[in-house]
């Protein structure tokens, strides 16, 4: 917590509650990606320390958070890449239910069920950055089976290559393809239901 206090004094005009919230978000993200509380704590501390060094460049909380998260993403990617040079630990190999369920969007012939068929989304770009949309996105992401959420974030947020995700999680390329397919189907369905509901 002294890290927060220190940040508070460095960013004279930053709200301590905002910084505490950013730190929570970072920890959640790092824990999900790294699967280890200790390594997550370390990555977050380092990212915050890195941000402190460049403190003068920032105007406004949004820019500051973007910067801190960018540093954290790089840290997480570094840690994951380093791990690939180490032997895979047993706990990673024991997880057998790797893929999580296929969301129930198709009928027995593999065609869209009526209620799940993708409808047109009106003007999706405009809303991506609104806080309401991001709250819905957050809820939908958290509703995914854990492995699906983790792989989706590794791919789309940390932007790891498929091979890197494979080595990190001890999964095959086809596992990754199946997991990402299911994650995207489930996420899309959840967003349509809770956000883009018009015109269904």
């Amino acid at each position: 917590m002294d890290q927060i206090a220190r940040l508070g004094t460095e960013f004279a005009d930053a709200d301590p509650a905002f910084l505490a919230r950013v730190r929570e978000d970072m920890l959640r993200f790092a824990r999900l990606q790294l699967g280890s509380d200790d390594e997550a704590e370390d990555a977050v501390q380092e990212a915050l320390a890195g941000a402190l060094k460049n403190v003068t460049n920032f105007r406004g909380e949004a820019a500051l958070k973007t910067w801190i998260i960018a540093i954290l993403k790089n840290k997480v990617a570094d840690i994951l890449r380093q791990r690939q040079r180490r032997p895979v630990v047993a706990s990673q190999m024991q997880e057998t239910d790797q893929e999580g369920a296929l969301p129930a969007v198709f009928d027995r012939k593999g065609m869209w069920r009526d209620a799940a068929r993708p409808a047109r989304w009106e003007d999706p770009e405009a809303e991506l950055h609104s806080s309401q949309f991001l709250a819905v996105f957050d809820a939908c992401l958290n509703r995914l089976p854990p492995q699906q959420g983790r792989v989706f974030m590794m791919r789309e947020i940390v932007e790891l290559e498929t091979q890197e995700i494979c080595s990190e999680l001890g999964l095959s390329v086809s596992n990754i393809h199946v997991i990402l397919h299911r994650a995207r189907l489930a996420l899309r369905a959840c967003l349509q239901l809770h956000w883009f509901h018009e015109g269904a």
């Binding site: 905002f18 993200f29 960018a70 806080s131 992401l141 967003l191």
Partner: peptide, 12 residues
């Protein structure tokens, strides 16, 4: 959306 989510200051 995932990238917007990661870089947002108001996600929660």
């Amino acid at each position: 959306a995932a990238k917007a989510y990661a870089s947002s200051s108001e996600q929660k």
